[in-house]
Design a protein around this nucleic acid. Structure first.
Length: 692
DNA sequence: GATCCTCGAGTTCG
DNA sequence: CTCGAGGATC
């Protein structure tokens, strides 16, 4: 065989293996063999540079950095779609188009995922990839051919397989979505973090940014892939139904989604989109919705446009989980330990069905590290679908008017200078009399995990502190019903009755008169809370729920604990020099000694638990983590159930975790368990394991 | 001395 | 849920 025909053969082989690996995800040769083939190819090309054509697999990377991107006019407008939010909207769309054309009545629908990536337009002439462009404004995009060449999933030559009998138009232009799959994104960020480099915000921005790099070498290093779904232009015959188009594109060797389905009626199509709304985490990429298209493309075209949106398809949007909004300002909150926590004040925005106005910024270093400035557009996500947090600023949206944030030098509540301890991130207000800290302290004292006094929220506690009725947590127990009556008066003062409100249904509702009695009873009842709860409630730095329980096993009451030295304390597992010192310090403070005295006088002085033998059971020696909402057990019940069977419950997944008990709407714990190979079970399996 | 694990603390909205 | 930090472990 002569070199030239060997060269052509090699080119074809490398293309095919590439396609099998990146598009079909089903390689038939090892990476090593693949490398051998490409090396042989490169060797021939080195000897015969004149043979090299742009469709050679070696030409994916290696192009020179560009100065700028040329503008490209698309052969036909690259359209956007009207949105539907929910099934109602989608059905309304169907009704509208059905009235316009009764053929819609019998129409079929194709449902495809709407991937959150970058829309690209790929040009092929005589089967060779000659140009790739961004969508731009839909009319004119940017030429990013060199960057797209580095994307392995894009065939440089079609049809990819020589055995394919499909006819290819001389000129064909297809549209697809370029993106980075979630897992690859995580891995990329992990690698960047390990190398000490800045990590990316999300897959979408990373894919878009990487494809708009002037240096193709950088694009090549990013795990970008794509899925193709539309023929924008062809100078030969192509299918006229969307379903067949997907099939046709696949036969040419393009990567095509395997999530698409065709339905005979709109209701099934909508039902299918909804299953993906719930199961969107199972998609390997970020999707912001599903697209419902009328399968018959001629009918779709006949329906025309509303403004710029074609009537023949609609984007069924999932509720956003990640949005950008403006950072209006940064407030500073004082915690019960005196820690100052910055809080982002955001322009109100809807994320996953709720309006978010605030988000924590964790600490001041976080703001500096992420280079967050006031006035920035910021990317906000709801962690575990609940708590919003800021991922980072969208630096591309900067106008130059953003202000760099300077952390406060004085406590926003009491005005005392703030302090910072060596080796710690947090800044503290160290004023023992800081009113903000007292309020937080009392709130913590009465909270569910501590003394569990119902009816005492932020507002009521604030009133008690401000009116001077409560100067420390022990004062709660000497409050009389009359004292508590003043709360109602204060509340009425603060909430003057609204004027102009219609009052025909009921007379203006007053604060329920029962409140003082109820509160009084709740406070009295809490006096008999066991020692671990009281200990937790005191809020000693480093002593929480778990530590309190462990301490209560050794020390009979607060007297015993207050007499313990640092040495004694360190005998307890989990107590080291720092926590021991923190406990000794707390008991040494005159303010706290006074509180203890008052508590004792009020009869709040529980004795430690009897030292109970650790229960033996089916779960002895096993560690469990619970995530999400379980079908019947509450989080507390599940914990009690596991402990009753001799098992241990912790909050974070690690290698030592025996089982992750999975409920509805799990968070990142599931990902972690999977990556560590921790066994995942449901509530029913948990019960089965216990032998119930 | 480095790494892993666990605990504590603060957190949003309805 | 996320992050920081103390403690345990190798």
């Amino acid at each position: 065989m002569n070199t030239k025909s060997r060269y052509e053969e090699l080119k074809q082989q490398v293309h095919e293996h590439n396609y099998r690996y990146h598009v079909l995800d089903a390689p038939i040769i090892s990476d090593l063999e693949y490398d051998r083939l490409t090396n042989e190819l490169k060797a021939i090309e080195a000897e015969h540079p004149d043979w090299v054509t742009p469709d050679s697999p070696t030409q994916r990377a290696g192009a020179r950095p560009a100065d700028r991107f040329e503008k490209v006019r698309h052969p036909a407008p690259i359209l956007s779609l009207a949105n539907a939010f929910g099934a109602e909207d989608a059905r309304a769309w169907f009704e509208r188009v059905r009235k316009l054309d009764d053929r819609v009545e019998r129409a079929k629908f194709v449902v495809e995922p709407k991937i959150d990536g970058l829309s690209v337009v790929l040009h092929y002439r005589n089967g060779v990839f000659v140009q790739g462009a961004t969508r731009g404004d839909g009319e004119v995009g940017e030429d990013i051919t060199q960057n797209l060449r580095t994307v392995r999933a894009i065939p440089l030559k079609i049809p990819v397989s020589q055995t394919s009998k499909v006819s290819v138009p001389n000129s064909i232009v297809v549209r697809g979505e370029a993106f980075i799959p979630n897992q690859e994104f995580e891995e990329l960020n992990q690698k960047l973090a390990e190398a000490g480099e800045k990590t990316y915000l999300n897959p979408r921005n990373t894919a878009a940014g990487s494809l708009r790099q002037l240096d193709p070498a950088l694009t090549a290093s990013r795990p970008i892939t794509l899925l193709v779904y539309q023929i924008v232009y062809a100078d030969g015959p192509v299918p006229t139904s969307q379903w067949e188009i997907l099939d046709y594109l696949k036969s040419l060797g393009f990567p095509v989604t395997d999530v698409a389905r065709r339905f005979d009626e709109i209701d099934s199509a909508i039902a299918y989109t909804e299953t993906w709304n719930e199961g969107r985490d199972n998609l390997p990429y970020e999707a912001d919705g599903m697209v419902i298209k009328i399968d018959d493309l001629r009918l779709a075209a006949d329906l025309g446009f509303v403004g710029k949106d074609p009537r023949g398809a609609i984007a069924f949007k999932f509720p956003a989980r990640e949005v950008t909004t403006s950072l209006l300002g940064i407030d500073v909150e004082v915690g019960r330990t005196g820690v100052l926590t910055p809080k982002a004040v955001l322009e109100a925005v809807e994320i996953g069905g709720v309006i978010v106005r605030n988000a924590t910024l964790h600490n001041f270093d976080f703001i500096a590290e992420k280079e967050i400035r006031i006035g920035d557009r910021v990317l906000v996500k709801r962690a575990g679908e609940v708590i919003p947090y800021i991922i980072g600023p969208v630096t591309d949206a900067r106008t130059g008017r953003e202000k760099v944030y300077t952390p406060p030098t004085h406590c926003p509540a009491c005005g005392q200078p703030v302090e910072h301890f060596e080796g710690e991130v947090a800044w503290y207000c160290v004023n023992a009399a800081c009113p903000a800290q007292l309020v937080r302290n009392v709130e913590h004292f009465v909270s569910r995990g501590a003394m569990d006094i119902e009816g005492l929220g932020t507002e009521i506690v604030g009133i008690l502190v401000e009116t001077g009725l409560v100067k420390d947590v022990a004062d709660l127990f000497t409050l009389s019903v009359d004292d508590l009556l003043t709360i109602n008066e204060e509340l009425n003062k603060r909430r003057p009755q609204k004027e102009g409100v219609e009052t025909k249904k009921k007379s203006a509702p007053k604060a329920p008169p029962k409140r003082p009695e109820k509160l009084f009873a709740a406070i009295q009842a809490s006096k008999s809370q066991p020692l671990p709860r009281l200990l937790t409630a005191l809020g000693i730095h480093g002593v929480g729920e778990v530590m309190s329980r462990d301490l209560s096993r050794t020390f009979a009451d607060l007297d015993a604990l207050s007499k313990a030295g640092a040495e004694d304390l360190q005998q307890i597992e989990g107590v080291g020099p720092n926590i021991a010192e923190s406990i000794v310090d707390w008991f040494a403070q005159p303010v706290n000694q006074k509180v203890l005295k008052k508590l004792k006088a009020a009869g709040v002085w529980p004795k430690g638990e009897e030292i109970t033998e650790k229960k033996e059971g089916a779960f002895t020696g096993l560690t469990f983590v619970v995530t999400g909402t379980l079908p019947t057990l509450s989080r507390e019940d599940a914990k009690a159930f596991i402990e009753a069977n001799g098992g241990k419950v912790t909050d974070s997944v690690s290698k030592k975790t025996s089982y992750l008990v999975l409920g509805e709407n799990p968070g990142s714990k599931l990902d972690k368990a999977q990556s560590l190979g921790v066994k995942v079970i449901g509530e029913d399996e948990l019960k089965k394991l216990a032998g119930v």
